[in-house]
Amino acid sequence: MDVLKGTYSQLIESKAKDLGFDACGFTQAEELTAEKEILKKWLDNHMHGNMHYMANHFEKRVNPSKLVEGAKTVIVLLTNYTPKEKQSHPDAPIIARYAYGQDYHYVIKDQLKQLYSYIKDEIYPSLEGRYFVDSAPVLERSLAVRAGLGWIGKNTHLIHKKLGSYVFISELIINLTLPPSEPIKEACGGCTRCIDACPTQALTSPQTLDARKCISYLTIENKESIPQEFSGKMENRVFGCDICQEVCPWTWKSRPHTNEKLKAVTKILELTKERWQELTAEEFSEIFRKSAVKRAKYTGLKRNIEFLLSKK
C-alpha cells in the first residue's frame, strides 16, 4: 500500500507541473504545535496591526485538519511569479512584483480546481477536501516548510532553493493519506541583508515582522492614514514592497516564470510618474481591472501616492 501511495504522490506532482505549478510537496494535516505558540506571541504583541482577521479562527489557522473533516494530507504547491519585465520608468511609483500581471487568485484557483478534479477522477474517487490560495485561515508558509518546499527566511518569506521567494503558495487539504515530504534545512546562514535593508525597520529580529512598520502593510492592509513617522522612508513604494526580497541572494538565483496567465500587464508597467499622480477613478478601474492592485482601492492608492509626494 505504501508503494501505491508513493505512486499517487508522483502522479499528483507530475499533474501539478503539467498544470503550471512549479513545485509540489506533501505534509500531514495536523496541529502546527510550534507555530501555534509563535503566532500567539505575535498576536499578543499586536504586531498584526489592524489585520484583525489574523486573530480570527485561531484554532483552524494552526490546524488544517479543522478546515476539512477527515483531512489526512495537505498538498502544498508553489507558483513562481518572478517577472522578466520591469517597470518602464525609473522614477515612477513602485508596485510589488506579484501585482504586475493578472490577479493570481483567479489563475491559481482554476489550476487548483483542475488538480482536485484529477485526483478525484483518476486516483481517489472518494476524495473530499478543499483548496485555497490566500482564501482561508491557513499558515501556508509553515505548511510549505513541512512539505519540504523551503525554509522561512529571516525576512519571514518562504525561500525555495531554486525558485527563491517570489512564489505564490496554495494548498489542497484532502482526506487521502499520502507520505509526507522530507523538510530541508534552513540556509540563510549568517546573512542579514534583508534585516539591514528594511527602510522602516519592520524586521525586528530574524523571522519576526512587525506588520505595523511594514511598507506592504502600510500601503495595502492599512486603511487609515500612513503615520508621518514613515515619511521619506517608503522608498517610492506605492503598493507593496519587495525590498527584503530584492536583497536576498537566494532570490537572485530565481528564473523568470513562464506562465502566460501571469504575464505582466503592459499598461501597468508603462505608467509614468505623472500618470500615477493624475490617475482618475475611471482609469484605475480600467487599468487595474484584473490586477491585485485593486485590493488597495482607488482611495487607498491615491492616499499612498499623496504620501509619497509629501515626503520631507
Rank of each mutant, 00 (worst) to 15 (best):
H48L: 05
I169H: 05
K311S: 13
C198E: 04
T272M: 07
N236T: 08
S165F: 13
K17W: 06
M234Q: 07
K40I: 09
L67I: 13
C214R: 00
K154S: 10
Y100F: 15
S170R: 05
K84E: 15
A136M: 09
K312E: 04
I75H: 12
S126G: 10
Y98S: 08
F21V: 09
Q114F: 06
A99G: 02
Q87R: 11
L203I: 14
E13C: 12
S181G: 03
I95H: 03
F284I: 02
A202H: 00
G232K: 13
A292D: 05
V62N: 07
P227T: 06
C244I: 01
S65I: 05
A92Y: 07
D2C: 10
S285E: 13
D91R: 11
G150F: 02
P90I: 09
Y116T: 02
R61N: 02
K162C: 13
K312V: 14
I173M: 08
A92T: 02
E286D: 05
K60N: 04
C188D: 07
S117E: 09
R295F: 10
A92V: 08
L4H: 10
E122G: 11
K233I: 07
V138R: 07
Y53D: 10
V62A: 04
I108L: 15
L149P: 03
H160V: 10
N155A: 09
N259W: 11
P137V: 13
A296H: 01
D210C: 02
P93S: 04
A264M: 00
K5I: 13
L301W: 04
R303E: 01
K297P: 02
E182S: 15
D2N: 13
L127Y: 05
P227F: 00
R237T: 01
S181R: 03
L209P: 04
K72W: 11
F284D: 04
P206S: 10
E140F: 14
D196R: 15
K253M: 15
K17F: 13
E186A: 15
K312N: 12
E224P: 08
Y217I: 07
I173A: 00
K261P: 02
D210H: 00
D134A: 06
D134Q: 11
F58K: 03
G129E: 12
T258A: 15
K213Q: 08
G6S: 14
R212D: 02
E35I: 09
Y116E: 05
K261C: 13
V74E: 04
A144N: 07
K263C: 08
L67E: 12
V138K: 01
Q277F: 08
